[in-house]
Simulated scan of single mutants.
Amino acid sequence: MTEKAPPPGTQRPGGRTARTRAAVRDAVLTGLGEHGYPGLTVDYVAAHSGVHKTTLYRRWGGVEELVADALDLAGEDSWTPPDTGSLEGDLHALAQEVAESFDDPAASAAPAAFVAAAFRSPRAADALRAFYAERFRRSAAVVERAVARGEAPADSDAGDVVRAVSAPLFFRLFITREPVDPAFADRSAAAAIAALRAGVFSAHGSTQAPASTQPPADTGA
């Protein structure tokens, strides 16, 4: 059976060095921050990376693959989730990391442009999905450690928990375009923690309210 060739830009040809790929990635990030996805061009990337335009076309194919490969490279970093020693500390720290990463408009321009690109390019959408899937996979360790310490139900869906922490933040950042401050990040983490402890994220998909919250039975008196 013939193995399917990988998409352009996702596999390093023999002549492409890590330095070249990083230079192209940096140029893509700068271009996204300055012009957004619609304004990014191969000419811009060539001028700012020092890589000839014909080389960019031959190895990446065009803007769509350049953006996707920049995301692929971002996902190859060594980031690890917080490890404060407690579930609450880890999830609050995780929420604060998200908020802080978008606190500087200049620094957040490229991530926001990646999201915009995902709506226009199927390849960019796949790369963005893979990037966040990897981030959430690593973040799941926070919940797994909490389960081992007895701080969370054993059947908790770790992936859903960490998604619940960042979901309100991403909604504000990318949908309603509202500001996100440390207090809101803390509330997002607190809501996820409360839901986790209430069994909302049970892998079995069923929850039951604590007995104290149930209305009293009608005794007919």
Rank of each mutant, 00 (worst) to 15 (best):
A5V: 08
P7N: 14
P8V: 12
R12G: 11
G15Q: 14
G15K: 03
T17E: 10
R21Q: 06
R21C: 11
A22P: 11
A23G: 04
V28H: 02
L32Q: 07
G33R: 00
G33H: 05
H35P: 10
G36V: 01
P38F: 03
G39Q: 15
A47Q: 05
T54L: 10
L56P: 02
R58D: 01
V63L: 07
L66C: 07
L66T: 15
V67P: 00
L73G: 02
E76L: 09
D77I: 00
T80G: 07
T84F: 08
S86I: 06
L87M: 05
L91I: 12
A93C: 06
A95M: 10
E97T: 03
V98P: 02
F102Q: 01
F102T: 06
D103P: 13
D103L: 13
D104E: 04
P105D: 03
A107D: 15
A107M: 04
A109T: 14
A113Y: 01
A117M: 02
A118T: 05
F119T: 02
A124L: 05
A124Y: 01
A125R: 10
R129K: 12
R129S: 07
A130S: 07
A130Y: 12
F136G: 06
F136N: 11
R138L: 10
R138E: 06
S139L: 01
E144D: 08
A148R: 08
E151Y: 13
A152M: 09
A152R: 07
A154H: 13
S156P: 14
G159E: 00
G159H: 00
V165C: 10
A167D: 13
P168A: 14
F170M: 01
F170S: 14
L173T: 10
F174W: 07
T176Y: 12
R177W: 06
E178I: 03
F184V: 01
D186S: 13
D186L: 07
R187W: 13
A190Q: 11
A191R: 01
A191P: 05
R197N: 01
G199L: 11
G199D: 15
S202N: 14
S202H: 13
H204K: 14
H204Q: 10
H204I: 03
Q208A: 10
A209P: 12
S212Y: 11
T213A: 06
T219D: 14
A221I: 03
A221N: 03
